[in-house]
Amino acid sequence: MDSPTPSASAAPDAAAVERALRLARLAATPLEGQRFAAEFERVLASFSELARIDVRGVEPLATPSARCDVLREDVLRPSLEREQLLANAPQPLDGFFGVPKTIGGES
């Protein structure tokens, strides 16, 4: 079921592109999907040089920051008011963020 062990030079197949779009919560018409897949393939092909670089013994560098695990004291601090936070919400609902009904009944 899973794709074979990928190498960075492997071109993405249509199913993999569709999966990436689904994971990203992005929809595309079939025509857009095709165009997208072709573009995607071209972009990734141009990045395939990455796979040819010898990285044996090299640790990944996720951030240039020397700071990590920075914690502050676990005490309550003033923050934004509920009204301010809801001011930009597309559907404020009784002091909460409104979303389509997800459990039971009709939406």
């Binding site: 899973d2 794709s3 990928p6 190498s7 960075a8 492997a10 993405p12 993999a16 592109v17 999966r19 990436a20 779009l21 994971l23 990203a24 992005l26 997208f36 573009e39 995607f40 972009v43 990734l44 990045f47 990455l50 796979a51 670089i53 990285v55 090299v58 640790e59 990944p60 560098l61 996720a62």
Partner: peptide, 29 residues
């Protein structure tokens, strides 16, 4: 949309090591 999809792809199961982790190693180089 292109970049978000590309990012989802390189982070997704089966491609994470080959793309994202590989890129982080080259970043260190």
């Amino acid at each position: 949309r292109r970049r978000i999809a590309l990012g989802s792809y390189v982070l997704s199961s089966g491609y994470y090591e080959a793309w994202y982790v590989q890129a982080l190693k080259v970043r260190r180089l």
